[in-house]
Write a protein that binds this DNA or RNA. Structure first.
Lengths: 121, 121
DNA sequence: CCGGATCCGACTGGATACTG
DNA sequence: CAGTATCCAGTCGGATCCGG
């Protein structure tokens, strides 16, 4: 009897984890946390993302019901993206992860340095 | 004044997120949650991972101080991997994410179906 | 035999140019 | 402004080979 089944390939957690376990999905969700945003705004806010990946990430999130897209007809015309209610539920786990990242940055960088030093020496 | 800085490319959260935001890191961490394990055990438990990616993932986690490797000399010889204290602190956010995944699988699959149907029709 | 490095094909992601 | 098409480099991942 194991405590965790996450390592079974077809379990819900693994299937769903694939949705957010990529470079951009969580960042995009956070970028939309503050409210609806245009494509170009997202592209600006998410530093380092290419247009291709932004489009691809948004489409994926949209296909999974986390993000909603709507066309803007008023000037200036364009598209607007926003989190769905389901998408907003993802904010909590993402924030937990972000908080962890911030709290342990020092230790992670220290370990990385140690490792790099060992590789050099 | 923004509530989240995660979308800034060089913020701690983004830097650290890159560490776990891949297909296997979190799964590997969970696979190690129950306790130390051999390479071959991990390879078995984590369904679908190749040996190459397993090695690569473990090395990355090790380089960042989340996982510790030790050689086993007794029969059968081999390697054993375990979470470091720092690695164990990652379990909480990962579990939060897993829980979210399990709780919202239905909605996600429903959205996916809807999207697929729209693509067909 | 277990752990892991290497080789090579397939796919992914980025930059740029182009379209609606 | 919001993407799409194309090209190219880097990564993924299976098969295979090597060391203890």
């Amino acid at each position: 009897m194991v405590a965790y089944d996450v390592f079974v390939a077809d379990c819900p957690a693994r299937t769903t984890l694939d949705l957010v376990a990529d470079t951009w999905s969580m960042v995009a969700v956070v970028a939309l946390a503050a409210g609806p945003a245009r494509y170009s705004q997202l592209h600006e806010r998410i530093g380092g993302i290419s247009k291709k990946m932004l489009t691809q990430t948004l489409r994926k999130l949209e296909a999974n019901g986390l993000v909603e897209r709507r066309a803007l007809r008023a000037a200036p015309p364009g598209s607007e993206y926003r989190l769905t209610p389901l998408g907003r539920t993802l904010l909590e786990p993402v924030r937990t992860l972000s908080r962890w990242a911030e709290e342990h940055t020092d230790e992670l960088l220290a370990a990385r340095d140690r490792s790099a030093a060992a590789a050099d020496g």
